[in-house]
Design a protein around this nucleic acid. Structure first.
Lengths: 143, 143
DNA sequence: GAAGATTGAGAACTCAATCTTC
DNA sequence: GAAGATTGAGTTCTCAATCTTC
């Protein structure tokens, strides 16, 4: 069967709206605190995790939710702002290695309290613990 | 308490990713069928529901997930394509009434099978009936 | 002054095409 | 030729400013 039932359509609509509401809230909180958008945080988080070895753009892209063409300009902006460095790659002349700078690490640390508080407002505070884990479990099946 | 626990952060990340994955799939299906994007469907659906009386732009906006400035140009595009009409408003000279055209109704009818099939692929086929209603119930609390 | 709606400027996204190196 | 990455052109989004009417 390929037709969704009404419950499925309702769930779909709510998925769109709930995510939109939650994301708007988080982006708004970041902006009001004078921070860059969420996508910058994601970049900095992955680069921070990668440590001294850094990450290649394609590796970063695979960890994030971006198409191949979306990553270049995002990296440009974050680099231009001084939060990451593009370093020539020794063993592969096609690419670069991306590394987070000290300023980038500091920015990420400053963003986290704002971000985490906004997550709590948008999700944690509205659901019980049981609902949070049930939601998490069900959503994982959609990936 | 304003700090989210780990489960909440995980649920947040999965909400972003699941919605992104599902929405990408739906938009891709519409595009491959030669149809306009989902936002057009939403406009046509609301105008179709509103019937002969039509809808004011601000009323349409409140039913959709758009900021006030986003609706004007969306309406422009849909109108230009001939799927809705802007009609001068009798009792309020500031605004217009939007009405769906015959072509608009036909487009909506043609889009629905593609859209609904994509919803089923993205959500319905991946979850049990119980999970769908549980998901729907939990997401409604986030709105 | 507030509400309804539009517009201009700049930022970001999308897709396809391109370039370099493997 | 394929993989990694960037670029150009066009579209859409965002925010603030504006305009008209209530």
């Amino acid at each position: 069967m390929s037709e969704p039932n009404d419950q499925t359509v309702t769930a779909w609509v709510r998925l769109l709206r709930a995510q939109h509401a939650a994301l708007s809230g988080v982006e708004k909180a970041l902006k009001e605190a004078g921070h860059p958008p969420l996508s910058w945080y994601d970049v900095l988080l992955e680069l921070d995790r990668a440590g001294d070895e850094g990450l290649r753009p394609f590796a970063l892209q695979s960890k994030m939710l971006l198409p191949q063409y979306g990553i270049s300009r995002l990296i440009d902006r974050v680099e231009k702002a001084g939060y990451l460095e593009r370093i020539a790659c020794d063993d592969d002349q096609r690419g670069h290695v991306l590394k987070i700078t000290t300023a980038g690490k500091a920015l990420r640390r400053r963003m986290w309290p704002v971000y985490s508080h906004a997550i709590q407002d948008a999700v944690g505070a509205k659901l019980t613990r049981e609902e949070v884990s049930e939601l998490s479990k069900i959503l994982s099946k959609l990936l």
